[in-house]
Design a protein around this nucleic acid. Structure first.
Length: 283
DNA sequence: AATCTATCCTGTTAGC
DNA sequence: TGCTAACAGGATAGAT
């Protein structure tokens, strides 16, 4: 499944192949994915030049030459594949919903079996008003996420730390796996309330540790994504390349990997999602 | 106002 | 062996 580093890898791959290319034709093979495509979607893309591609959280933002942005979210199983003019490789057909025909004869194919992905079009100048982007919190990188603004976003909230970090208004782009890993590295229990982590008095040790753990996990994951998936074309499967580094995710019943800890990783359900944590290391 | 729950979807896997 | 049920999860709408 595409996690943030894979979205970033896809961004780089799309940028490499789509930048400067004109969209010659767009095939829409169904009227919706997670949501309906916007009105006139295919015709509004047709004839446009791709200027560059940005990313915000897990959203791909494809900038077109007429001042519009084509937004794409990969959902759970969304994938872009670049195919040469005569190639059918990597094209399973069954879940290929959007086919972009480029001027140079290549095709960019969006497939998504579970259809949790979605696309949108908006005026780039009105990006701040886009409903998907408007409420997002800071990116999980040092330039944006600081102990100060994390503390502000947690202060007074009665919800659990797990739920607070999954909330895209707290930090943008974190998913279930990352939140589990971040809280383990920070040594903070996922069950602890946000309010107890960010005291009224100011920045706490826990806030500092969560901030640093977030920066580190994201950087490592992006590096792992970048090094493992070297070429975006014909990406192999959805297996988590970062998964070999998991300390807690999916390790229920296995020993904690911290030195001198003999506890067992536990799984609980919070907000309808699995949480993995070490009851001894995370307090 | 904040926070919880159900919903969407289907391939994979665990259990009987 | 073959069936069913649980599970995965981002973001939204609606309920509390």
């Amino acid at each position: 499944m595409p996690e943030l580093p894979e979205v970033e890898t896809v961004r780089r791959g799309l940028e490499r192949h789509l930048n400067g290319q004109r969209i010659e034709n767009v095939e829409l093979r169904r009227p919706d994915l997670r949501f309906s495509f916007p009105e006139g979607f295919a015709s509004r893309l047709k004839g446009r030049l791709v200027e560059r591609i940005d990313r915000r959280a897990k959203y791909l933002l494809i900038r077109l030459d007429n001042g519009t942005t084509w937004m794409c979210h990969l959902g759970m199983t969304g994938r872009w594949t670049l195919l040469g003019a005569n190639s059918t490789q990597g094209d399973d057909g069954k879940h290929d919903w959007v086919v972009i025909h480029l001027e140079n004869g290549m095709r960019a194919v969006f497939s998504d079996p579970r259809r949790f992905g979605f696309m949108d079009l908006f005026e780039t100048s009105e990006q701040g008003q886009n409903k998907f982007l408007a409420k997002l919190g800071p990116e999980p990188t040092p330039d944006y996420l600081t102990p100060m603004n994390l503390a502000e976003n947690l202060r007074g909230r009665r919800t659990s730390m797990k739920a607070a970090l999954l909330d895209q208004r707290t930090v943008a782009g974190l998913g279930n796996i990352y939140v589990c890993e971040i809280l383990f590295r920070a040594g903070v229990s996922p069950r602890r309330t946000a309010a107890s982590v960010a005291s009224k008095l100011g920045i706490t040790d826990r806030v500092t540790r969560i901030t640093a753990a977030t920066h580190d996990v994201i950087v490592e994951a992006i590096d792992a994504g970048g090094s493992t998936i070297s070429d975006f074309v014909n990406v192999e499967g959805d297996l988590g390349y970062f998964s070999h580094s998991f300390q807690v995710y999916g390790r229920e019943g296995s020993p904690c990997l911290s030195k001198a800890c003999d506890a067992t990783i536990r799984r609980i359900v919070q907000s309808g999602r699995s949480t993995f944590y070490c009851p001894s290391c995370q307090r």
